[in-house]
Design a binder for these strands. Sequence first.
DNA 1: AAAAATGGGTGAGTAATCCTCACTCGAGTT
DNA 2: AACTCGAGTGAGGATTACTCACCCATTTTT
Lengths: 200, 200
Amino acid sequence: MEATKSKPHPPGRIKIVDALTALLEQKEFNAITTAEIAKNAGVTEALIYKYFKDKRDLLHQILSAFLKDYHSKTLDDLRGIKGSINKIRKLIWTHFNVYSTNRVFARILLIEVRSHQDFFNSETYTLVKDYSNILLHIIEDGIQSGEIRDDIPSKIMRQSILGSIEHICLTRIIFNREILSDSLTEDLCNFLFIGIEKQG
Amino acid sequence: MEATKSKPHPPGRIKIVDALTALLEQKEFNAITTAEIAKNAGVTEALIYKYFKDKRDLLHQILSAFLKDYHSKTLDDLRGIKGSINKIRKLIWTHFNVYSTNRVFARILLIEVRSHQDFFNSETYTLVKDYSNILLHIIEDGIQSGEIRDDIPSKIMRQSILGSIEHICLTRIIFNREILSDSLTEDLCNFLFIGIEKQG
DNA sequence: AAAAATGGGTGAGTAATCCTCACTCGAGTT
DNA sequence: AACTCGAGTGAGGATTACTCACCCATTTTT
């Protein structure tokens, strides 16, 4: 009797997820039909609705898997780094880097899911918030330790940082331009930190 | 002979635009059907396609009108303000304020249009860029005059500022929370400026 | 060992919805 | 009086997300 073995997904489900993921490399979600997904997966359309509530739920599930990966990767990346400022720099780099290397993930998160209100009430959205809270806690620790200014609401700082990253990436993703994680991190941190670091 | 009198829109067109604008107060674009728009406008569905290429084009036209208004309002607001930093503060306030008072505009710009690639190749998107360039020019003037740091690409600064604003507003719009322009401007400027202003 | 349940998978169809096309009507214009 | 032109219509077509009844193999129960 193995401990908490979440049973593997059935082959049909895997094929459907893979098919949509692959199709998203080529065209936007709205332009992909369920018939197309089924054909590429080698299953029937009806099977999609056995495993997913609707077409958007399928998209949400794909995003969920990405986000879980990304969340634990972020935590790993931060281990062993000392100081809030250094942690933030690393988090920013990791964020740029994941968008840079995983365009489909970036597209889904920044473009596809946002246009429907129900995403923001979905299970998947709580994962986004979880990630966002990693940064919030780093900021709050930094305020506690005196490394970060205490005269600005921590949530504003968080939103400004995340908003900066996403806005910088958005056009690059839309127009398929490169995202140079190293230099972008350098520039953005250089810009933001002098505002964050306690003066004197 | 009057100068460049762009002929007024036909009544049917106006009714269609008004109908969709009103419906957008209540529900999201994707949930609004062409039949619904036509019914609310008191015209037939076919008329929509006389004046607009498709349903999204109608949305883009509405956004265009908003943007043109907003662009000239912004320019007006900036007149008489001395100093790049002061201009940026004013622009940030105006930006928060327009989202605060005009939720439909905010929803369209931040949520509805982004999910389709062709928006970014549309006429309407050039208006967004025009607005964005106002800020870029202010920043570049500030660099020239020595008021703003010259060691960070001006476009990064612009994107960080706009991204911050939009990210801060997004959740507030999604969850229908208040946008307090005054205090948000205060906090955001306080955060960003010390990073922007030339030290020493 | 027979029966029942379970779960992966299918084929055929339906309802909704965006959009098109051929057309009408009335107000100028020549 | 014939013609053009712009506003507007009605009926229908094509696409597509989604549903429902059903099949078949494997596992579980009796």
